[in-house]
Simulated assay, not measured.
Amino acid sequence: MTGRDGGADIGPIGNSPVVILVRPQMAENIGTTARAMANGGLFHLRLVAPRDGWPLERAWRAASGADRILDAATVHETVDDAVADLHHVFATCPRPRHIVKTVLTARGGAAELRQMSSRGLRTGLMFGPERAGLDNEDMARADALIRYPLNPAFMSLNLAQAVMIMAYEWWMAEDATPPRTLMTNETHVATKGELDNFMRNLVGQLDECGFLRNEQKRPGMVRNLRHFFTRGEVTEQELRTLHGVVTELARGRKARATDGNSKG
């Protein structure tokens, strides 16, 4: 069940951590795990003693195009066999059971995995079976444990969700996306010159209609208007729209004045 057509292009493989599912119980969970892995740039999947055997058609149906991960997945009889070629292995564990080991958050674990991978070391992330999680023998094969700091009153995750958290943190550990951006589409953020040009137009029309007739208050009112337009990142398209608004208001005022004079 390999080399199937129609799978999505999930990007370059690289030296990302191996995701090791220990005794997974449902094909759908394996498929959704592959989907979560692809989202976060994790591409290597190993299965230890899957309950229903392997391969399983239902896994591919649940993977939403992450076929390449499932196609390349390997099956192992034991955890020892699955981790034999790795240098470091972290195990996810919701409830450490009287074990003396380093415990990391997902973010801390991802940062360490990135550092290890950058040195050419092969790493792995172990996840336990859906119903009970990893047992003490499984965790004895890990160098450190990863525990998610979630709501202590409700920490129930399905397998794919648990993998998605680590995949996200792995991706974000080297992601350069700014935390805040302005979507401008086909326009651009207005320059100071473009803003000054609009302010001259606006203030000129406000002077002409008498809105700024109070000479003492005029400088403060103009500053307030400028503050309003510089508080956010006004775009060039928005300024063009506002230019049009001001122009039409002035045209309407002049038309009314001309009509009034003709009637008079």
Rank of each mutant, 00 (worst) to 15 (best):
G3W: 06
R4C: 12
D5F: 11
G6A: 14
A8G: 09
D9F: 09
P17L: 00
P24D: 10
E28G: 14
N29A: 06
T33H: 09
R35M: 10
N39I: 00
G40S: 10
G40T: 05
G41R: 07
F43I: 05
H44E: 15
R46V: 03
R46M: 07
G53M: 11
E57I: 07
E57L: 10
A59L: 00
G65N: 05
L70M: 10
A73H: 00
E77M: 03
V79E: 01
H87N: 15
H87S: 13
F90C: 04
A91R: 03
P94I: 02
R97H: 13
I99K: 11
I99M: 15
T105R: 04
A111K: 12
S117G: 12
G124I: 01
F127N: 01
F127Y: 11
A132D: 15
D135N: 15
N136Q: 12
R141G: 02
A142I: 00
R147H: 14
P149R: 04
L150H: 07
P152V: 02
L157G: 09
N158Q: 08
V163K: 06
A167F: 04
W170T: 04
P178I: 01
R180W: 09
V189H: 00
E194P: 03
N201K: 09
V203N: 07
G204D: 14
R213I: 09
R213V: 11
G220W: 06
L225F: 12
R226I: 00
E233I: 03
E236H: 13
L239P: 02
L239F: 01
T241E: 14
G244A: 12
V245N: 13
V246L: 12
R251M: 11
G252Q: 14
R253I: 04
A255F: 09
A257S: 14
T258P: 01
G260Y: 06
